[in-house]
Simulated scan of single mutants.
Amino acid sequence: MPDTLDDTAVAGRLRDLPAWSRDGNQIRRRVKAPSFPAGIDVVTDVARAAEDADHHPDIDIRWRTLTFALSTHSAGGLTAKDFDLAATIDRIAARHGAE
């Protein structure tokens, strides 16, 4: 089981991910895709990356707006896995022209 990060480590990791914010024991990011189909493409690519990482975000889809939430439930908090997948989500969103 991965180790949870303390508040200092979480703050440090968030500095590298400015689009993400902490919400209790999770980190969240809202992404606006250029179109609904582009948003679904983002979700599809995130789903593939999540499967590869064996770490799965909560995803809310509202037309072109996608909200991603990450937490390592098995560890009871935030771990490096959350921040690694967050960085991957950022790259995927950018590749699809989402902001």
Rank of each mutant, 00 (worst) to 15 (best):
M1W: 13
M1A: 06
M1R: 15
P2L: 14
D3M: 15
D3F: 11
D3H: 13
D7H: 14
T8R: 13
A9S: 10
V10W: 11
A11H: 12
G12F: 05
R13Y: 06
L14I: 14
R15S: 13
D16N: 11
P18K: 15
P18A: 10
P18E: 12
A19I: 07
A19T: 14
A19N: 08
W20Q: 13
S21G: 15
R22Y: 10
R22C: 15
D23Y: 04
D23G: 03
D23N: 08
G24Q: 01
G24K: 03
N25G: 14
I27N: 03
I27K: 07
R28S: 07
R28L: 06
R29E: 06
R29Y: 12
R29K: 13
R30Y: 09
V31S: 01
V31W: 05
V31K: 00
K32D: 09
K32P: 14
A33K: 09
A33D: 06
P34M: 09
S35P: 02
F36I: 10
P37G: 07
A38D: 05
G39W: 00
G39M: 01
G39Y: 04
I40Q: 10
I40S: 05
I40N: 08
D41N: 14
V42F: 00
V43D: 01
V43F: 01
T44A: 02
T44W: 00
D45W: 05
V46E: 00
V46C: 03
A47P: 07
R48M: 08
R48V: 09
A49K: 09
E51Y: 08
D52H: 01
D52E: 15
D52F: 00
A53G: 00
A53K: 09
D54L: 05
D54I: 02
H55M: 11
H55V: 02
H55W: 02
H55I: 04
D58S: 10
D60E: 15
D60F: 14
R62L: 08
R62E: 15
R62P: 12
R62Y: 12
R62D: 08
W63H: 15
W63Q: 12
R64P: 06
R64I: 05
R64N: 07
T65A: 12
L66N: 00
L66T: 00
T67Y: 00
F68T: 00
F68V: 00
S71P: 14
S71D: 13
S71W: 01
T72I: 02
T72K: 04
H73K: 04
H73T: 13
A75M: 11
G76Y: 11
G76T: 08
G76E: 13
G76P: 09
G77Y: 05
G77A: 11
G77E: 01
L78R: 04
L78F: 15
L78P: 11
T79G: 12
T79N: 10
T79C: 15
T79R: 04
T79Y: 03
A80H: 13
A80P: 05
K81I: 02
D82W: 11
D82T: 11
D82P: 15
F83A: 02
D84F: 12
D84I: 10
L85F: 06
L85S: 08
L85G: 09
A86D: 06
A86K: 09
A87E: 14
A87I: 06
A87Q: 11
T88A: 13
T88W: 03
I89C: 02
I92D: 06
A93K: 07
A93F: 03
A93R: 09
A94M: 10
R95Q: 14
R95H: 14
R95M: 10
R95C: 00
H96W: 03
A98P: 01
E99R: 11
